[in-house]
Simulated scan of single mutants.
Amino acid sequence: MTDPKPGLDGVIAAAKQAPGRGLPPVHLWNPAHCGEIDIRIRKDGVWFHEGTPIGREALVRLFSTVLRKDPDGFHLVTPVEKMKIVVEDAPFIATRVDRLESGALRFLTNVGDEVEAGPEHEIRVDLDPASGEPRPYLHVRRGLEALIARPVFYELVEMAAERDTAEGPRLGVESNGAWFPVGPAGAHCL
């Protein structure tokens, strides 16, 4: 039996073990922390290694499968290593939304994840403290979120309906039995 590969090569090897698009069980792995690796995910969803954009989409998708959020930050995790990376905002970007015949909202992320919004995949909207602009997010898996791209958020606002809430009238969307506020009443008319 050979020793597992260290560093970036080990991450690639571990991620390739996931059959098809299935995800490795990173939530079950508890390796020793091995330090940091110079990988940064910018807030626009571009992944960098040692200051250079990772141009191979397949490699970014592969890394995304072994990404985990722990209390101390984001890590690429293998059965034998855990390396901290920098994520400026959310690690993924929701680049598309479709309303299914069932009424559910299905999102596609920049790394190929398909996620139906619902009780386990919530949509939330924060306000940027500096600009006051909405920052919408979708829970993808195990604490990892996708920032909903501006054009996709505009589509959500167009799909939204008004509802009375404890905070007053709000616009929101429904998916898989859950209702998610996306803005104040009348926002789609602005």
Rank of each mutant, 00 (worst) to 15 (best):
D3F: 08
P4I: 07
P4R: 12
K5P: 03
K5C: 03
P6L: 12
D9L: 15
A15N: 00
A15F: 02
A18M: 07
G20L: 13
G22K: 13
P25H: 05
V26H: 03
H27P: 00
L28R: 14
L28A: 14
G35H: 10
I39P: 03
I41N: 02
I41L: 08
K43Q: 09
D44C: 04
G45A: 05
V46H: 03
H49Y: 12
I54M: 15
G55W: 02
R61E: 09
L62I: 06
T65I: 02
V66E: 03
R68M: 08
H75F: 15
L76R: 00
V77W: 01
T78N: 01
V80G: 04
V80I: 06
E81V: 01
K82F: 00
K82M: 11
E88V: 03
E88T: 12
D89P: 00
T95F: 02
T95L: 09
R96K: 15
V97S: 11
L100C: 10
L100D: 12
G103T: 06
A104S: 15
R106P: 00
F107S: 06
L108H: 10
D113C: 01
V115Q: 04
E116I: 06
A117W: 04
P119Q: 08
E120V: 06
H121E: 09
H121A: 05
D128Q: 01
P136E: 07
H139A: 14
V140K: 00
L147E: 08
R150P: 00
E155P: 01
L156D: 12
M159W: 11
R163H: 05
R163Q: 13
A166T: 11
E167L: 11
G168H: 00
P169L: 05
P169H: 00
P169V: 05
G172I: 10
V173G: 08
A178N: 05
G183F: 14
P184N: 12
A187Q: 08
C189L: 14
